[in-house]
Design a protein around this nucleic acid. Structure first.
Length: 748
DNA sequence: CTGGGTGCAGTTTTT
DNA sequence: CTGCACCCAG
């Protein structure tokens, strides 16, 4: 198929509804060399990158496995894969000869997935039989293995100058003590806070590609930090463990080693064609180590295509830096000596009513912080309207209510009205966007209450409510009654928050077990049999096996047939699995899931083990809670109103968007400060993280967050504000020029 | 509409 | 411990 036929074919894809614009065609038909696509919201960014991929396959006859296509989340990766399959099947129906293209061999994945899978596929010797740790497991590993969190104070005191050196990660609110550690107190923070802060610092050392030798040479708390980091990294690798940051570092090692030559350069077969094209979606959220990986992957071909929107960068708190996107051309010049690269602005919006586009484009431009050099890509044109959506109704409105309850009531009434008047046909055509969707008084709580009162179904998987569910409380209560039957270890825990949540679980178990003799007898006899075991002996079962055994008894055995309950039980199962797989620091041949009895007679499971379980795992659960498991493909189900974080909503669109919390000024100060603090040790010469002041960065992050929220809307955008917000308008109401929400919306 | 006192609640996320 | 929301007085 030639390029013209290809373009004609994809423009005729049924259901897409609009033709390709010239800039989209440039993206799709671009030949070799770097390609920099700055794409505004709703500009057909994802389709453009997918079509470019198909063009490489269909027109250029590039070998599928030589194309790497990465994006930010697994859901987005699945979505790209689905679109590629659908469009390819459509093209095959037009031209049978395309049938031989094995399009599912394109490497569509998140970057983490790509790193992990390719190192395994090519059997990289530096990554054999590694267990990839999620953030919970990483923290459990740190608390168990870092000398700095040791219970032996003669060991941990060697790190006493570390904590006050980085107050922004350690002086944070601690739910277990309901207080904030004071860096001037002369005492270290508690182990949970140490661990949480250390994981942030360790991850950033890796992701920011810091020069640890220079940090060490700086002395003081920098030197101590490097000692702690290197101890962590060595123990991690010695135990065949790898965290998300290090899987990327390992991959970089792989790419720089001889062992990657078959992957990078291939052997001329379609099985191993080498890397010919690298396409990156959501590039604005890339961090420094990821940038280095992408440039390394494309070093040979120079075919690096990055797509993103600098205005939608949301992930500074995990090391993402918009600089990678804003300075992409400079990076190509510096690293590859390419004087000029092809850049394309996709600035025609096919998503929203023109009035909504005017609103959020004006919103973005109303902040002087966004016009400072380096904040946005130079020469970015205003968004223009290209959608068929129009109409004489006012598309942006604000409701000014008395307080949260009144606003939530208005929201529920409006949904009822919309469905009643058939302005919507399904509740999932509307979305409520918030910074945090936790069920609490100042967040999603009032909205969840109001919707329940109106019998309107909603979907809010990130309300941190999993541990409140009956089946979870019962099963964890049962587990505690087996491993700590008289609560002796629990009573020794000094944090009331941990003891209280455990008592709640035990109480819930007792309530349910009262009517279920088999479950009750099983737990009692199991606990007694452990008590009767000899001292210092293996209990013979793993922590996780006890958990599974409980599922054999009613009502738990009935509950696991309920898909919702069973999914939630699965989440807890994963957490216990994570704990069970942490190597025991005293004997790394055993994992923490290995149960053994006390050295004293008839004391049951080792008192030390039980205390550790309460402090480390239950401490983590008590302070942070757990979210529900989400579907791997669907972002939200039909029939219910999605209540989403703005982060969740990135890349999605909804006919009607409601945004609440316009004065929310919550940003991750620790990340902003850490970024500035670490900048001087960065090996990346293109790093411009010192360009803005802390205040400017905070403002920019907030503006971008509201911009993402506002730009999700297709037909109508409704802002919800309570009195305390609109009497002292925050960042969500616009910048300091003449532009404000009040002048640009109608009141409803 | 504004200021002071009181009471509640405590961020976003990648396999 | 701090920041925000809310209430009530002026």
């Amino acid at each position: 198929m030639n390029l013209d036929d290809f373009i004609n074919a994809i423009e005729a894809i049924p259901g897409r509804g609009f033709r390709l614009d010239n800039n989209q065609k440039i993206v799709i038909s671009h030949g070799d060399g770097p390609l920099w696509v700055i794409a505004g919201p709703g500009s057909g960014k994802t389709d453009s990158i997918v079509f470019r991929c198909l063009k490489l396959l269909v027109v250029d006859k590039v070998s599928p496995a030589s194309i790497i296509l990465t994006t930010f989340t697994e859901k987005a990766a699945n979505n790209l894969q689905t679109r590629i399959s659908q469009y390819m099947q459509y093209l095959i129906a037009i031209d049978k000869s395309l049938e031989t293209i094995v399009y599912n061999r394109i490497r569509v994945d998140t970057l983490h997935g790509l790193c992990n899978d390719r190192m395994q596929e090519f059997r990289f010797t530096g990554y054999q039989n590694y267990r990839l740790l999620d953030d919970i497991e990483q923290r459990l590993f740190i608390i168990e293995h870092s000398s700095s969190t040791s219970l032996d104070s003669t060991v941990s005191q060697n790190y006493d100058d570390l904590w006050p050196g980085f107050p922004y990660v350690f002086a944070i609110f601690d739910p277990l003590t309901t207080s904030i550690w004071n860096p001037n107190s002369g005492r270290p923070p508690n182990r949970n806070i140490k661990t949480k802060g250390l994981s942030k610092l360790f991850n950033r050392i890796v992701e920011d590609r810091l020069d640890t030798n220079a940090m060490y040479a700086e002395g003081g708390s920098w030197e101590t930090l490097v000692k702690a980091y290197e101890e962590y990294r060595n123990k991690l690798f010695d135990n065949y463990r790898c965290d998300f940051a290090h899987v990327q570092l390992k991959f970089l090692d792989f790419l720089k080693s001889q062992q990657s030559s078959l992957f990078l350069y291939g052997d001329g077969t379609d099985q191993y064609p080498g890397v010919k094209h690298v396409l990156v979606d959501e590039y604005q959220d890339t961090n420094q180590i990821q940038e280095e990986i992408y440039f390394k992957l494309a070093e040979n071909s120079k075919n690096l295509c990055v797509v993103g929107d600098d205005d939608q960068a949301l992930y500074r708190f995990r090391g993402g830096t918009v600089d990678c996107m804003v300075n992409f051309e400079n990076s190509c010049q510096q690293k590859w000596k390419i004087p000029e690269i092809t850049s394309v602005f996709l600035s025609t919006n096919y998503r929203s009513n023109p009035g909504i586009i005017t609103f959020y484009d004006g919103y973005m431009r109303s902040f002087q912080e966004m016009s400072l050099p380096g904040a946005r890509v130079r020469g970015k044109p205003p968004l223009t309207a290209g959608s068929a959506i129009n109409g004489s109704y006012p598309p942006v409105a604000i409701h000014r209510g008395k307080n949260a309850d009144e606003v939530a009531e208005f929201f529920a009434n409006m949904l009822e009205y919309l469905l009643d008047k058939q302005l919507i046909h399904d509740y999932s055509e509307c979305v409520l966007l918030l910074h945090s969707t936790k069920r609490s008084k100042y967040k999603a709580g009032p909205f969840m209450d109001a919707l329940e009162n109106h019998n309107i179904p909603y979907y809010n998987p990130r309300s941190k409510g999993l541990l409140e569910q009956e089946e979870i409380k019962v099963i964890l209560g049962g587990l505690l009654k087996i491993i700590d039957p008289s609560s002796t270890a629990q009573r020794a825990v000094k944090f009331p928050a941990i003891r209280e949540i455990c008592d709640e679980w035990r109480g819930e178990f007792d309530r349910v077990a009262a009517n279920n003799k088999d479950l009750r007898d099983y737990v009692t006899s199991y606990a007694n049999s452990i008590l009767r075991m000899g001292p210092s002996t293996s209990v013979g079962v793993n922590l996780l096996e006890i958990f599974y055994d409980l599922l054999n008894f009613p009502p738990l055995s009935d509950w696991i047939d309920d898909p919702e309950r069973s999914t939630r039980i699965g989440v807890v199962c994963n957490v216990l699995d994570a704990y069970s797989n942490v190597p025991n620091s005293k004997n790394t041949k055993n994992m923490l899931g290995f149960l053994y009895t006390s050295s004293n007679v008839n004391q049951g499971i080792s008192f030390t083990w039980r205390k550790n379980f309460y402090y480390s795992l239950l401490g983590l659960l008590a302070s942070e809670g757990l979210n529900e498991a989400e579907d791997e493909i669907e972002n939200f189900p039909r029939g219910r109103v999605p209540i989403m974080t703005i982060h969740q909503s990135k890349g999605l669109e909804f006919p009607l968007v409601f945004v609440y919390g316009l004065s929310s000024a919550i940003v991750d100060m620790a990340s902003v400060q850490m970024e500035s603090d670490f900048a001087k040790f960065s090996r990346n010469s293109n790093n411009s993280s010192t360009r803005f002041t802390t205040e400017q960065k905070v403002k920019q992050d907030l503006v971008r967050r509201f911009f993402v929220a506002y730009s999700r809307a297709q037909y109508a955008l409704i802002l919800l504000a309570k009195r305390t917000e609109y009497t002292r308008p925050g960042v969500g109401f616009g910048g300091d020029s003449n532009w404000t929400v009040f002048g640009n919306t109608i009141e409803i």
